[in-house]
């Protein structure tokens, strides 16, 4: 079946089964590898992307449910690392293996889009679905607070 998607600002069409998870469409059909597979059952959050601005688990989102709203992946935050979350992640030097960080950053970016000055409690609620096997949680918390202080440059594009 053909599905029309908008990914990182760009319209595209994929011909895949309706129940194919968005994760595998992104990874194996559209070759957008930034979004990671960790568990396939919504336990780890490594596959977190934005669907209409909401953080969702791409492993549990069938492609057929992703046609109505724009999709943003980590590649869509910015290609040059200029998104405040990306800047903060680099400044705090968050990653260890880094495999979960795309999902962590997408959850963080969705939080910050709605709440420009999140408290630790807000961070708890928004981030508890994202596992970090390396245990970078102290850095993640710090980086979200940091990102909240970084102004988005209006010129930057979400596209690449």
């Amino acid at each position: 079946m053909a599905f029309k998607l908008t990914v990182n600002g760009q319209p595209t069409s994929v011909d895949v089964p309706a129940d194919m998870p968005l994760l595998w469409v992104l990874r194996d059909v559209l070759n957008l590898h930034g979004t990671k597979y960790g568990c396939g059952i919504g336990q780890c959050g490594a596959c977190t992307v934005h669907l209409g601005g909401q953080a969702v688990r791409a492993c549990l989102t069938p492609v057929s449910a992703a046609t109505k709203a724009p999709i943003t992946t980590v590649e869509g935050l910015s290609a040059d690392g200029s998104h405040p979350v990306q800047q903060a992640w680099m400044e705090i030097d968050v990653p260890q293996c880094g495999y979960c960080q795309a999902g962590q950053m997408m959850s963080a970016a969705a939080l910050l889009a709605k709440n420009s000055k999140p408290t630790d409690k807000d961070i708890d609620t928004a981030m508890n679905g994202n596992l970090c096997r390396c245990g970078t949680y102290l850095q993640i918390r710090k980086a979200i607070h940091k990102a909240a202080t970084i102004k988005t440059k209006p010129a930057q594009s979400a596209r690449k």
């Binding site: 194996d28 070759n31 957008l32 590898h33 930034g34 979004t35 990671k36 597979y37 992946t73 980590v74 590649e75 935050l77 910015s78 290609a79 040059d80 690392g81 979350v85 990306q86 992640w89 680099m90 030097d93 968050v94 990653p95 880094g98 495999y99 960080q101 795309a102 950053m105």
Partner: peptide, 29 residues
């Protein structure tokens, strides 16, 4: 000196290639 990891930019932009991200021409899964 505290030095940030060299692959950080790749990681935060989703461009870092992990083993799972490898691709070859005509590759199957």
């Amino acid at each position: 000196k505290a030095t940030p990891a060299v692959d950080n930019l790749g990681i935060v932009t989703g461009k870092a290639v992990y083993s799972i991200d490898m691709m070859l021409p005509g590759m199957l899964y």
